[in-house]
């Protein structure tokens, strides 16, 4: 049995695609100034070949949570939750964002917390300031748990956002 030219072309295309899948799996990314690198990177993103499959690997990340505290011009303070029903698909998909939060770049952290603050300004028109705090759970090891140590929440990020004069824009203060 001999491959036809059409079969051979598809086979070569499949092998090239598979090579990109392997590159993605071993964390080889394609991003750079050269056109070919950009093309390969964009193709890998569109086809899903750029994934690295690091599910719960090499270590299981800690759980994170966010708290949002509002303050109005009179100095009154109150809190609200980002998600009213964490049990929904939307709820735990959002919880997934929080899990990655400790590893995000500063720029992405600021962008995300600014988004959440903006949602709070929309929900609470009287709020003048929103303080976003993200904490990560420090789960003890099995041995420490047996010795009586229990989980504690450690702060990893805190940012305050003030409402701008023109309304819905927010501004990072810290």
């Amino acid at each position: 049995m001999v491959m036809s030219a059409r079969q051979l072309s598809w086979t070569i295309a499949a092998l090239l695609h598979f090579a990109l899948v392997v590159c993605g799996a071993v964390h080889v990314g394609f991003r750079g100034d050269a056109f070919l690198l950009d093309f390969l990177g964009q193709y890998s993103d569109l086809s899903g070949a750029n994934n690295s499959y690091s599910f719960f690997a090499p270590a299981v990340s800690s759980q994170s949570r966010v708290s949002l505290a509002m303050r109005d011009v009179g100095g009154n303070e109150w809190e609200d939750a980002l998600l009213h029903d964490p049990a929904t698909v939307f709820g735990w998909r959002t919880a997934g964002i929080l899990d990655g939060f400790p590893d995000f770049s500063d720029q992405l952290r600021r962008g995300l917390t600014a988004s959440w603050a903006s949602v709070m300004f929309g929900r609470h028109p009287l709020a003048e300031e929103v303080v976003v705090s993200v904490e990560v759970e420090a789960l003890p090891t099995m041995a420490d748990w047996r010795n009586g140590t229990r989980s504690a929440w450690k702060p990893v990020y805190k940012g305050a956002f003030r409402r701008k004069d023109d309304g819905d824009e927010s501004n990072n203060r810290s």
Binding site: A25, Y53, P58, A59
Partner: peptide, 11 residues
């Protein structure tokens, strides 16, 4: 890939 990456961590 996911198995090997898991095996690289002590957990």
């Amino acid at each position: 890939a996911t198995g090997i990456e898991k095996a690289s961590g002590i957990q």
